[in-house]
C-alpha cells in the first residue's frame, strides 16, 4: 500500500533531502513506524516519548488535520496523501513551560485511560 508523504524542509535531513517519500501502513502510527525503518529518527521528531503526536507538529491526511481523525490512530487508505508541517507558533514568553505541562497532562491522561 503506497502512501505519499510530504516532508517539510526542516525534516528533510532524515530523508536525504527528499521532499516526498512513500510509505505504508493502516494507521498514521503504522506509517510513521514504516517511515522510521528507512528514515531513522523521523518518527522521534513527530511523536513524543509518551507516544502521542507532538503538540507543535501538524499532520494531515489529504485535507484533514489528523487531530480530527483520531491522531496516530487515524486510518489510512492506499493512495492517501500525508502532509507534515511544523506548526507556525511562538510568542512573547511563558508558553514553552505551559505547553510542556499540557503535553505531560495529556500523556498522563492517555496513559491512565489505557
Amino acid at each position: 500500500m503506497a502512501i505519499e508523504v510530504r516532508i517539510p524542509t526542516i525534516l528533510r535531513s532524515y530523508t536525504g533531502g527528499a521532499k516526498i517519500v512513500e510509505g505504508a501502513g493502516d494507521t498514521v502510527a503504522d506509517l510513521l513506524a514504516d517511515l522510521d525503518s528507512r528514515h531513522a529518527g523521523l518518527r522521534g521528531r513527530l511523536v513524543t516519548d509518551a507516544g502521542v503526536l507532538h503538540r507543535f507538529v501538524n499532520v494531515y491526511v489529504n485535507d484533514e488535520d489528523v487531530r480530527f481523525l483520531g491522531a496516530l490512530d487515524a486510518k489510512l487508505n492506499d493512495g492517501d496523501s500525508i502532509t507534515i508541517l511544523p506548526a507556525v507558533a511562538g510568542g512573547a514568553f511563558g508558553f514553552a513551560a505551559a505547553a510542556a505541562i499540557a503535553s505531560h497532562t495529556v500523556a498522563t491522561r492517555a496513559a491512565a485511560a489505557r
Binding site: 510568542g91 514568553f93 514553552a96
Partner: peptide, 21 residues
C-alpha cells in the same frame, strides 16, 4: 509576529518552535 509588551527579540518559545529554517 508581534510582541505587544516586550522587545522584538525571539523568546525561548519562538526559538524552540521555529520550524522554517
Amino acid at each position: 509576529h508581534s510582541h505587544t509588551a516586550t522587545e522584538a527579540y525571539p523568546s525561548r518559545t519562538d526559538v524552540s518552535l521555529a520550524g522554517e529554517p
